[in-house]
Simulated scan of single mutants.
Amino acid sequence: MGFGTLLWAPFRTLRRNPAPVFGTGLVVQLASAVATAAVFVPFLVLAIGRIESASAEDLDAVMSGTIGWLILLTLVPIAVGVVAGAFLQGVMVVEVASGTLGEKLGFGALWRRAAGRIGPLIGWTLLVGVVVLGVVALIVGIVVVTALISPDAFAVLGVVIVVLLLLAGIAVLGAWLGTKLALVPSVIVLERAGIAGSVRRSWQLTTGYFWRTFGLILLVGLIVSTIAQTVVQVPMLGGTILAFILDPTAGATYEAVTIGTTVVGTVLSILIGAIVAVVQAALIAVIYIDLRMRSEGLDLELERHVEAREAGVPVTDPFGPAPAGPAAPTGGAAPTWS
């Protein structure tokens, strides 16, 4: 597939089978939002009540306990987000793979196929999360330790420079590793490999195609993030301006318009967030299939599979791992993305 086809294929995936695909993305966004609200709203109500009723002697202890519980409770929406995000990746891989074979699966079928690989997907997502948190903790630890040892201005300036350089190096390393390992979820689902085997497989498939893969991920990310920010922020800004025009004194009308704008902004954020998550997950699956076409002749295998299926001949899974040995010849017409 050409670069242009790859660029727009994730959007066509959403258009081809919108109900189950967008529905899954929406469920993921709603699950994260509901989990966050269910945890933090009651806690904040209780915490504010305790802080307001606390005496001056107990205020510091109450504040410390509140902060500690707040940090602990953030693990709940993070855990929900990890599971939901991993599941969305699995669903989108199944959807893209079935689309190349001309199949259109319903909501239940997509979920059932993805659920079979949810364990390794969650494991991989948690592994990535632990690495990211470890890097963040390392940077914070360097800043805190240096500030405690030598709090003068020159030392602080030196720490800032070191941290900025460290962040730049981590960003470059993260972009490289993120690109090389981007195909791990697709391998886990379609080839039913373990985490270690999927890491090796992703590394192998992206060898020689790093910049192409990196460019696609970056470009699609910029496109969807720009659209998302525009769609969400423009109504929010317009609502703020309208509230000020209708009620410059910030009275009841101002509050009503502000509340309405916040509700609209929240709904738009959930809807647009679902689309963004779906497109980004679908892109990785599309790149995975394209790289297998280029290096292993998967397009020919898919054509043979479809021909045999239409002829009534028993078929096997065409997305299974390629056999060891020389790569299959490439060529032939790629499946259409209609």
Rank of each mutant, 00 (worst) to 15 (best):
F3W: 13
L7N: 05
A9W: 03
P20G: 10
G23W: 11
L30P: 00
A31V: 07
S32F: 04
A33E: 06
F40E: 07
G49D: 15
R50C: 06
A54T: 14
D58M: 08
D58V: 08
A61I: 08
I71G: 07
L75T: 14
I78R: 02
I78N: 01
V80W: 04
V82H: 01
G90E: 09
G90M: 03
E95M: 06
L101Y: 03
W124I: 14
L127A: 14
A137F: 15
I139E: 07
L148Y: 05
D152W: 09
L164N: 03
A171I: 13
L173I: 13
E191A: 13
E191V: 11
V199A: 13
T213W: 09
S225Q: 11
V234E: 12
P235A: 07
L237C: 12
G238I: 13
G238D: 03
A243T: 06
F244P: 00
P248K: 08
T249A: 15
E255C: 03
G265C: 05
T266Q: 04
I272Q: 00
G273I: 01
A282E: 02
I287C: 00
M293Y: 02
E301A: 15
H305S: 10
P314H: 11
D317R: 11
P318N: 14
A327V: 10
G331S: 08
A333F: 05
S338I: 04
